[in-house]
Design a protein around this nucleic acid. Structure first.
Lengths: 148, 148
DNA sequence: CTACAAGCTCAACTTAACTTGAGGTCAAGC
DNA sequence: GCTTGACCTCAAGTTAAGTTGAGCTTGTAG
C-alpha cells in the first residue's frame, strides 16, 4: 500500500497540541521515533499522533515519562501498531492504572467517609486504616497509601 | 479538655513515613503548620498526620503540591478539622478527582477499545474522538485529553 | 553536667520535564 | 535566486519537589 503522508515536526506539534521542543525531548527519551529527510529534518508516521496522545493522557494522570516509555516499549518501533500490540500495552498497563484508579477513589471516598464517620483522630480514620497492614510489614513509609 | 500530646518533627516523620526535610518543605509551602517551643523547635498537633496522609495520597495520583495546598486551604489552621471542614475540602476536590478518575478510566478502557475496534488510524480512534469537540473550540492544545 | 541524638536555618545540589536562545541549515513562494 | 518561515543542534535556564550538608542550638539520659 502507498505510504500515508508523513508529518513534519511542526505538523505533529499542531495536531497533537504539544510543543516542538517537547517532541524533540520525547524523541531523545525514546518515547517517539522519526526518520530523517535528506536534509536532516524529522518525518513522522501517523502512529506518532496516537503515541503522543497516550503520552499526554498518561502524564496528565501522574504517570512519569519513564514509566510511559517503559509501557510504550511494547509498541513496535517501525510500523503502525496492530491490535496485538495494543493488547500488550494495555495489559502491561492495566494493573498500574487500576491501582491508580482505586487510589483516587479511595482519596475521594475516603474524604467522604471521614465526614460520614465523624472521626477526628487520624488513628481511627478509614483512610488511614487501609494502610495499617502495611505499617506492620515494613518501614514507616507508604502507610496511608493504597497497598501495592 | 487537656491538650493531646504534641508531636515533634521526628515523630511526625516516623509516623507519616515522610522525611523531616519534606515536612519542613511542606511547612514552608503552607501545607502544614506548627508552633514552636521556647527552644524554637516545631511541635505539631495530631491533625498534621491526616494532613500529611492526604498530601501523600494526592501526590501519588498526580496532584501538585500547589493544588493540594489550595484544597487544604479549606481546612482550619488552628484546630482539628470538624466534619464540616472535611465536607468543604471533599466537595472542593470532588470534581477534580472525578475528572481524574474518568481520565484514567478513559486511558485504561480507551486502550482496550482501540484493541476492540481495531482502528489503526488516530483519526478514528475512540480515545481521540472524545477530544474532537475541543479541537474545534480553541488552540491545538489539550485535545485528546478529557474535556475540562 | 556533659555527651550526643535530634532540631534549626540557609544555601546549594538533584531529577524530571521541558523551554529558551544562539547560531546555522532547508525549502517553498515570488 | 533569494528571502522567510520552518528545522536542526546544543547549551543553558526554569519550576516542582525535595535532599544534602555545614554550622549551630536543644534537650534528655547517664
Amino acid at each position: 500500500m502507498a505510504p500515508v503522508t508523513e508529518l513534519t515536526v511542526g505538523q505533529v506539534a499542531m495536531r497533537s497540541g504539544v510543543a516542538v521542543s517537547a517532541l524533540h525531548f520525547y524523541e531523545a527519551r525514546g518515547l517517539i521515533r522519526s526518520h530523517r529527510t535528506s536534509g536532516n529534518q524529522r518525518r513522522y508516521g501517523r502512529d506518532v499522533l496516537r503515541r503522543v496522545a497516550i503520552i499526554r493522557v498518561a502524564q496528565e494522570v501522574g504517570i512519569s515519562l519513564a514509566e510511559i516509555a517503559a509501557a510504550l516499549q511494547s509498541l513496535p518501533e517501525g510500523r503502525t501498531p496492530t491490535r496485538e500490540d495494543w493488547n500488550l500495552l494495555s495489559t502491561a498497563w492495566r494493573d498500574s492504572l487500576d491501582q491508580k484508579i482505586s487510589q483516587l477513589k479511595k482519596l475521594r471516598d475516603g474524604l467522604t467517609d471521614c465526614i460520614g464517620c465523624g472521626c477526628m483522630s487520624i488513628d481511627k480514620c478509614p483512610l488511614r486504616n487501609k494502610g495499617d497492614k502495611l505499617s506492620k510489614q515494613g518501614a514507616g513509609a507508604r502507610r496511608l497509601l493504597v497497598e501495592r
